[in-house]
Write a protein that binds this DNA or RNA. Structure first.
Lengths: 137, 137
DNA sequence: TTAATAGTCTATAAAATCTATAGAGTATAA
DNA sequence: TTATACTCTATAGATTTTATAGACTATTAA
């Protein structure tokens, strides 16, 4: 399961993308309309800024805005930034790989191989879908 | 990510399935060969027994054994029992559904619809793959 | 220059979940 | 009746999640 942080972050990004570049969007505005706890949202947006997804402006007329085209921001990237690994097991993660301590040989592990397949399958979907896709409609 | 409990549980089940009905398998044997903390494993196997996946026998010649044919036990079932929801969001879970508190209407939510698609995709794989498949080789 | 606005930074913390371990108890077989 | 092996209850440290509080800084407009 994705954390609430991740769900909130994705909803906020979709909200900003829907604004379609009409200037920065206020944290308080996102917080109210998407019903996300404001202080929590502040931390999440700051995180997204650190990873180069969002930019921000202080003072009147300020807020958060996208730094990239919505069609260039995939769900795979966003989930990795907000939630971490996409794979079901660390020994099968592409970006957060960790050796399996209890496995003598991962290449022979049936679980490892199956979970790699699940990962590839999910990744195909997450890479295809972009903020642009989710902000339309 | 799946919890260690889930990974341990799956490995134990594959181990038992590989034994192929040649009598019950000892907890201590699984613990040693799969390098799973024994006390932790005890709790996990007990859980699997409660859910009707495993049976057990006490005393000499005892141990754990499968109650069903390996080909009738899917990864979907096992992950649900051991880990919980397969879906990425509660509002999209088939077996652990929870209403999205911050969503006025889930049917209109872009995230909801996409995550339902991801769920279906993953579920197809998890339902196809059985203990039999993973215990071969 | 100063007042209002709006994001930033640091600290804190309750709650939940995860990952176990200890030890006494019970059923079974030889 | 003894050794074996699963069972049950309790406990507990570590980590992660989900926030909240409050002071600080940058920006804009009057």
């Amino acid at each position: 399961m994705l954390s609430k942080k991740t769900k909130y972050g994705l909803k906020a990004l979709i909200h900003i993308a829907k604004n379609g570049g009409k200037g920065p969007v206020l944290i308080s505005s996102i917080s109210e309309k998407e019903r996300i706890p404001k202080k929590f949202l502040e931390a999440i947006l700051l995180d997204l800024k650190k990873f180069g997804i969002l930019g921000s402006k202080k003072g009147k007329g300020g807020g958060y805005y996208l730094l990239k085209e919505p069609k260039d921001v995939s769900m795979a990237t966003l989930i990795r930034v907000l939630d971490g690994p996409i794979a079901m097991l660390p020994c099968v993660s592409l970006n957060f790989y960790e050796r399996c301590e209890d496995c003598p040989d991962e290449q022979i592990c049936e679980l490892n191989r199956f979970m790699a397949q699940v990962r590839d399958n999910t990744l195909t979907l997450l890479r295809q879908k972009t903020l642009h896709d989710l902000a339309m409609l």
